[in-house]
Design a protein around this nucleic acid. Structure first.
Lengths: 212, 212
DNA sequence: ATAAAAATCACCAGTTCATGTGATTGTCAA
DNA sequence: TTGACAATCACATGAACTGGTGATTTTTAT
């Protein structure tokens, strides 16, 4: 039984050469090659693939959005992302959307075939530079801030939570049924306790220190 | 120039066969093979390796502890972990301690040599099953908020970072050597992309979505 | 080559914020 | 009962922000 591979890639030349590469490889067949993800569901049903190769940058529906949709509607399909750049944010977003693998387009054809095979088997093939970035991000996420003790009153905490939600003094006043001036006073006290001088500093500190 | 590889592995048979594998491979040489990490620093100075293969389970000083020490004392050395099990916690701990790669011991000899080579070049070779677990953990850690993909330009991200630090437009202008009006324009664009309408909302969203 | 996106700057009107000063009321512990 | 603190409100001013219009230059993608 051959692995059915579908292809989403807006560059015509690359799309065709990938299609050929897949069809020439043993044990796999390209059942669909599309230039965008605008008729994603339809294309997926038509191609009925086990593995999807998805370009991250496409006109219309982005590759990342497409991954999210595919993972929702066809959760058993494994997705191999393809991109020109090993850009942190996009890798991050693609992984979170549910992509299994992440290969740079410049990857050697033979390696690409191996990656498809690995993806099919439930692996997570990654270009070396991508793997390194994933580990870096992984370590960064784990960092813990040293927490200092900050003693806010209940009311102050309540108002700080509303600040974090992005509310203005006016909003907070009406939410809490108090006057704007009172909000202002509370905020002033919060600033003193947090030793900050603006809403955004307070919000950042509140979040990092997990005060909310 | 050959890659100098040091080996920490308590199983004598495995240690010797790995040593042989390395010495038989082109472009690398085993400059030290040790059964434990109890004389780690001394061994490291003696072997002076560029790549360390470290067993995760050893009597005495654990492989993970050893990684931490090596990364502290010899930060330029790349470390390839070796283990029998692909156990979540240990993978996690090893990565956080600073290991670059993570291979199961049952990996084919040829693949192991490739992994050493990749590690030397700053890559992060991982056994497929490990890579999958890393991605899983990665997603779990992130699954707090559903992350939407927000495509900010470099400049916008830079300015967003400064906003999170609590800087005013004036500060940002002087930090970035641009006019206040330019800062204002960038911020406007950031707001549009994040769909917010104030500094504090932007800051909160930036932090929660890990845009900074 | 050409269109799109990014980065830069300017002017402006209205809104919101930061901070100072001062005051009243209720609670609670010393 | 007195002082500390929390919560409430008021007035005021300068600074900072939001959002709209419009424009030029550079970079980037196709």
């Amino acid at each position: 039984m051959e692995i059915k591979v579908a292809l989403f890639e807006d560059n015509k030349k690359l799309r065709e050469s990938l299609e050929q590469l897949i069809n020439n490889a043993n044990g796999m067949i390209c059942t669909g090659a599309f230039s965008d993800a605008n008729r994603l569901i339809q294309n997926m049903q038509q191609a009925n693939p086990e593995v999807v190769m998805m370009d991250i940058n496409m006109p219309g529906v982005s590759g990342i959005e497409a991954v999210r949709v595919i993972k929702e509607r066809f959760p058993n399909v494994h997705i191999l992302m393809q991109t020109v750049f090993d850009d942190n944010d996009k890798i991050f977003a693609a992984i979170c959307a549910g992509a299994s693998g992440y290969m740079l387009k410049k990857t050697a054809p033979q390696k690409m075939i191996e990656a498809i095979w690995e993806t099919y088997q439930g692996g997570a093939p990654m270009t070396s530079s991508v793997a390194v970035k994933v580990l870096q991000m992984f370590r960064l996420q784990t960092r813990v801030e040293k927490t200092e003790f900050i003693d806010l009153s209940e009311r102050e905490k309540e108002i700080l939570r509303l600040l974090v939600k992005g509310k203005s003094y006016k909003n907070i006043a009406s939410d809490c049924f108090i006057s704007i001036d009172t909000v202002s006073t509370h905020v002033r006290h919060i600033y003193e306790k947090l030793r900050v001088h603006s809403k955004s500093e307070a919000v950042a500190k509140a979040i990092f220190q997990k005060l909310v």
